[in-house]
Design a protein around this nucleic acid. Structure first.
Lengths: 229, 229
DNA sequence: CGGCGTCTTCACGGCACCGTAGCGCCGAGG
DNA sequence: CCTCGGCGCTACGGTGCCGTGAAGACGCCG
């Protein structure tokens, strides 16, 4: 029952290190150094999880992630150098489930991989993605940023918290009372219309067509939920 | 699988020593003695990492670093004599990722090279760079200096610590409470406005236009973060 | 088809948050 | 003893965020 990992990275030294770490942690790693081979290897071996460098020769990690995501729901963890800066926002929207910034602690990487594999161990993911395919937004929790189509969307603190609350459990409906408690900290019910207003403001910023919301959906008579497609 | 190192140094004795050390540590080194050859060799062999002496005949290490950085993101580790001091500031902004001061312990050099290559082992880098392209500042942690556009920026100890705390995890937002703990050592919350004031003082010194900060950014309702692009 | 409840949309005022300037203490160095 | 830089603290003004109220649109029911 050892998980098979596909590592996509063009840095041989890093690959070697990952090999040692992953094997000692009970994973079965395989390695490729560029995007084309990554896709072929993925289709061939169907790994349980993919580790993907953002910077690759030729086909970028972004394209690889998109391609894999197009044909599988396999967990993808991105490796990014902090110097990548400009590409980060775009990279995160490509369908990755989580990311770690180089240099990273091997333990942290393994913890995040395990968390993606078995939902039991709760390392809060750095990235949350919601919305139907073709209309997704990505939330970078520690950076407190939200992006769509590679553009950062400016949100107020309250809007951000509300979005995160919904995105943490996509498809699950939250009543206004629950949201008031989780986001506002109100212990016992206040005016629930507050929630309506802020959902509306949020939609105005993140929905391409706020009149037909696809990311934050209304469940009439109950509350709201985040859509995933 | 073994990392290829391009060593740029005009001192044959040092080169010989480096050859022995690097080979014994599993690297595959190649050597050139001046800047022009360095560039040619780099374009030709595309090494995994570059070791670069700051003092070179003809084209200086600074220019070489800039040229390489202009066409590749390859890790560059500078070798500097402690007597260089004056040139160091300029050299550090040329795009190097780390540096070691001669005379150095072979073990330290190798550790720093590994840290740049396999990002897993975290040797804290000597150099931190933050700010958007074209408006970057470089922090030399052991030297306790900060420079922008080749000019050293004078900071007080507190300002320096605050800047380093933010720069160690760029893009990530820090609350004022966390900063008070990390920088001031206050265990449980004091007046967080203290942080505001020092951020402002810091900006006055490092931001070209303090009214439109690009290096230290405010995240309203949350805290501050260092920008990278 | 009509009515009612639910949700959406807009406008507006209070206020928390942040940026900025200024003052005073304290310790280091002359 | 005096000077000066570094730091803590307060005060004040502006900006944008948030909460409320009220009217308009929509869907679900009889």
């Amino acid at each position: 029952m050892r998980a098979r990992v596909l590592v996509v990275d063009d840095d041989p030294a890093l690959a070697e290190m990952l090999g040692i770490v992953l094997r000692s942690e009970g994973f079965v790693p395989s390695f490729v150094a560029d995007g084309e081979r990554a896709l072929a290897a993925f289709r061939d071996s169907r790994p349980d999880i993919v580790l993907l460098d953002l910077m690759l020769p030729g086909m970028s990690g972004i394209d690889v992630a998109r391609a894999i995501r197009g044909e599988s729901g396999v967990p993808i963890v991105m490796l990014t150098a902090k110097s990548d800066t400009v590409d980060v926002v775009l990279g995160l929207e490509s369908g990755a489930d989580d990311y770690v910034v180089k240099p990273f602690k091997p333990k942290e990487l393994v913890a995040r991989m395990r968390a993606r594999l078995r939902r039991g161990e709760d390392v809060a993911p750095e990235l949350l993605t919601i919305g139907p395919p073709g209309n997704q937004i990505t939330i970078d929790v520690p950076a407190h940023t939200v992006s769509r189509d590679g553009e950062e969307v400016k949100l107020t603190p309250l809007e951000f918290d509300l979005l995160v609350a919904l995105a943490r459990k996509p498809r699950q409906v939250f009543t206004r009372e629950v949201l008031l408690e989780q986001v506002w900290g109100y212990r016992h019910a206040a005016d629930t219309r507050l929630v309506n207003v802020h959902v509306q403001r949020l939609r105005a910023k993140i929905e391409p067509d706020p009149e037909r919301p696809e990311i934050i959906l209304t469940v009439r008579g109950v509350g709201y939920k985040a859509g995933t497609g």
